[in-house]
Design a protein around this nucleic acid. Structure first.
Lengths: 339, 339
DNA sequence: GATATTTACGTCCGCCGTAACTATT
DNA sequence: AATAGTTACGGCGGACGTAAATATC
């Protein structure tokens, strides 16, 4: 058994059982892939694929089990290579991060800037996408880290570490009836056409739930993937904007009025996540620490030692997660232990 | 990186950093091993060994970490091969078991006989040794299963499944003062010279503790590794024998009197254990089930899913472990659930 | 007929083993 | 001197790529 045989085999599995596609991704010839797979099958003495004539129609049960094990092997090979880079003391390499527009546009810029200063030799790839796309990229190991909010079942086998919390902020044009009024209520909001994020599977559904809990039905007239688009339409007077608190910054103050919506909607937690079994480069952990200083080596080590995501909360009991918002950022602080 | 390079590397590590010894074990030439290791080091860009001139003096920290990962890889390769044997539906192969004399001589014979009837094509290797030797063989993956009693820290990373319980039996020659007397006490035993097992690190120390708890000091005049030797000396009138209850069978009744020692010493549990991460052949699980019928696929699966040996007890809460003794064997039974 | 896989075959890299050499005791 | 490891080198197997054949749609 050769590592290459396993690599070829998995490439075929991951490319819809298409040997030609797999060979192209592997930058090798198609007959070579075909042959190595036959040789692997011969050595193991079993068929990995169900064949319909010449083409592969499906994985056999045996093939599926071999594929699972093969993934472990190739992951560990990858881990050794990553480790070697760190042990050589090199600060070169690549760090790929999947995240949402809000993070990439409003939260990560200073983090990325600091990271690039510290690691000028590391190529940083920021992949932007929906929760589903982020989960997909992480599952396929196309990215090292994910930074997102909510997500529930999408992120199985992913270690998610809480980074910070945020609320929503309501944006209206200057002079709008809601501007300068009393403390905002959901009832107020329900009276106006709303402009907010596209509803995805993840936490955003809490938007509608908050209204429903008070017997209200929000009048959402327009949704967009990112806050910049939402703001544009709010400026046009199309409606009242509801965005993530981080998405409101000083530059908006000129022509938009931000209203505090804390308490109206449930507070959300943005996390940074990665595959439990994939070893990250040292600089990746540094990136995480730059992004969320409480996520230091010790805490991440403890989190990795916790087998289950659900029992992880206790680890962060002593951390007062920072709450981020355009005008009220504050640094994370560690709770004093109650005596 | 090639699997062979990892294999060569680990062989050197496991042979006292002696390349020649490693090459012999690998049935290949010494320069080949030397070269492949250099190539692995070149590819990873780091030294795996600390070299003193030409010879290897120690593993570098990097080498140690690579070795750990490499072991995972080769173990998974091994697992794939084992799995292939099962998936082919073959009932051929090898099953190596490390165990103690008592098990091999008194407990396993009927199990082995039944196993051999069912799997005539499987070569069964029984390796007999002390607890320490058994732990060693299991740790080095020289055996698939271990069957032993006690052992505490010796068996880290080993999944130990309780198989049955046993007490000690006291053996005396016919006509001995203790024969036919009242219920035996430790005080009685302490009055006579005793013949029992060699004290090892494991549960046997409970022997002395039982006496010490009553302020008694046993007079052990002779110790042996196995019950047959002990019986021989008891027959010679050298002293009173204290053996595992399984070690007394009908053939002894002619010239030895067995006295029930239940309650005098703590009850011991014999377990069957194997490496958590090593995949066993199907017939190995069948062997376990033959040995301890309550250790069926479901329970072993549940035990494998339990990350920690210490939290494993709950899994067997509903099992009434059989107690084995020369004259009072009984089958395991499942406790009725209390309503 | 277009697409996809296997078979066939020639090239070349790289692994292996022998032999000679070097360092260490 | 004996033991252990590296360097040198020739043989050979096997991996790869091109080209042709074959099966599938």
């Amino acid at each position: 058994m050769k590592l290459q045989q396993l690599r070829f085999f998995l490439a075929v599995v991951d490319n819809g059982l298409n040997i030609t596609a797999a060979s192209e991704r592997l930058f090798t010839s198609q007959p070579g892939v075909s042959k190595q797979i036959r040789m692997l099958e011969d050595e193991l003495g079993l068929s990995l694929f169900q064949r319909a004539g010449k083409s592969l129609s499906s994985l056999t049960p045996a093939g599926a089990r071999v594929a699972d094990r093969a993934r472990v092997i190739l992951r560990e090979v990858e881990n050794i290579k990553q480790m070697a880079g760190d042990l050589r003391g090199e600060a070169t390499g690549q760090l790929s991060i999947a995240t949402t527009h809000t993070q990439a546009r409003y939260v990560l810029p200073p983090v990325v800037a600091a990271f690039r200063r510290r690691y000028p030799e590391v190529a940083l790839d920021l992949h932007q996408g929906t929760s589903e796309q982020i989960a997909e990229m992480l599952a396929q190991a196309k990215v090292d880290l994910a930074i997102a909010t909510g997500g529930g079942k999408l992120f199985e086998n992913i270690l998610r570490l809480p980074a910070y919390c945020w609320d929503r902020t309501v944006l209206v044009p200057p002079g709008h009836e809601l501007a300068g009024g009393d403390r905002l209520t959901l009832r107020d909001l329900a009276r106006f056409p709303l402009v907010t994020y596209v509803f995805s599977f993840h936490g955003e559904s809490s938007f509608k739930q908050a209204f429903a809990a008070q017997g209200l039905e929000p009048n959402v007239v327009f949704t967009a993937r990112d806050a910049d688009v939402i703001k544009t339409y709010v400026r046009l007077g199309l409606g009242v904007g509801v965005v993530a608190s981080m998405a409101h910054d000083e530059s908006d103050c000129a022509d938009l009025v931000a209203l505090d919506a804390r308490g109206l909607f449930p507070r959300l937690t943005t996390w940074v996540g990665f595959h439990r079994d994939r070893l990250l480069r040292d600089f990746s952990y540094d990136f995480i620490a730059l992004f969320a200083p409480h996520l230091n080596e010790v805490r991440i080590g403890a989190a990795l030692a916790t087998p289950d995501q659900n029992t992880l909360d206790g680890l962060f009991a002593d951390v007062d997660l920072p709450v981020r918002g355009g005008c009220c950022d504050h640094k994370p602080k560690i709770k004093r232990k109650s005596t």
